[in-house]
């Protein structure tokens, strides 16, 4: 009776019991070892991951275009090493190239001081569109008005010819390439108001503006769709033609940065991006390229 009610019956000796504890601890031990080895190997920056793939990291503004190019590249040259696109932001991209974590960095702004030593390749230009809700009667603003709105000096749409509603300013987080470009191109030293709502991607800004008929935000021209309205800036429509003609001036560069010595397979990808085919693909997606 006593034996049968024991919680761990099966075998009378103690041996398997101790073994059982050990078995339970074993996966944990293995996990710790894996974690430790991962940490140790993480200390040594590696440019090449498995299968010799190329890592391209950086600006989330450039990311969707780079992904499209990488997909196209993989389709045309299946024998070449795959291109691995990662986000993280312009600064993270620059840092990744400097530390060797990525071979190619994507920037959506001019290189910062620390990034000056890198080789810079302009792959295209992107226009920033100032967007409002499609039902907003305002169809154009001067850059001074836009600055006043984002700085919080104008807070009602009636000031700029709209309905008498509060303006909901939607901006990007500090440090993002789009925000940095907007600060340079429009704000000219003024601060974006602390009250401004901050969304963490072009898509989130577009979503917020599409939802709110009193909102104003800024996104890549290539990402404007029919849910938002891109307004005229200083009486110039934000179109690719106007960007190429130089009349629409809210333009920022999309850059690839690399270290001086780039692997042949990395160079092959960049060559593809700069080829007529690559440039046409970027132009189709709404970027401003030099070849047209």
């Amino acid at each position: 009776m006593i034996y049968s009610s024991k919680p761990v019956p099966t075998k009378p000796e103690q041996r398997p019991q101790a073994g059982r504890y050990f078995l339970r601890a074993f996966p944990v031990l293995i996990f710790i070892m894996i974690a430790l080895s991962a940490m140790l190997s993480g200390c040594r920056p590696r440019a090449q991951t498995a299968r010799g793939s190329i890592t391209v990291a950086g600006s989330t503004s450039v990311q969707p275009f780079a992904e499209m190019l990488a997909e196209e590249y993989a389709g045309r040259f299946p024998e070449r090493p795959p291109i691995n696109i990662q986000g993280g932001g312009s600064s993270a991209g620059g840092r990744a190239v400097l530390t060797g974590a990525a071979q190619i960095g994507m920037l959506s702004r001019q290189p910062a001081e620390a990034e000056k030593e890198l080789t810079v390749i302009t792959i295209a230009h992107d226009a920033l569109a100032v967007v409002v809700h499609p039902q907003n009667p305002v169809h154009g603003l001067s850059s001074d008005q836009i600055r006043a709105i984002f700085a919080g000096r104008f807070s009602n749409w009636s000031t700029v010819g709209g309905t008498s509603e509060r303006i909901h300013v939607i901006s990007r987080e500090e440090g993002s390439g789009t925000r940095t470009a907007f600060d340079e191109l429009i704000m000219a030293g003024s601060n974006v108001a602390a009250r401004a709502i901050v969304q963490d991607s072009n898509g989130a800004v577009r979503e917020a503006v599409a939802q709110d008929k009193n909102a104003i935000g800024y996104i890549s021209l290539g990402l404007v769709d029919n849910r938002v309205k891109a307004i005229e800036v200083d009486n110039v429509k934000p179109t690719l033609a106007n960007c190429r003609a130089g009349t629409y001036t809210l333009i920022r560069p999309f850059l690839f940065v690399t270290k001086e010595k780039l692997s042949a397979s990395g160079q092959a990808f960049i060559n593809f991006v700069l080829s007529d085919d690559g440039q046409n693909l970027l132009a189709e997606e709404g970027l401003v390229t030099d070849n047209q």
Partner: peptide, 21 residues
């Protein structure tokens, strides 16, 4: 009113931050 929490502040800007930031 819109609001930012301590955790959001870290998560929003960590990707871009260098130096003192």
């Amino acid at each position: 009113d819109p609001v930012r929490t301590l955790t959001s502040n870290i998560a929003l800007e960590m990707g871009y931050a260098t130096g003192l930031h």
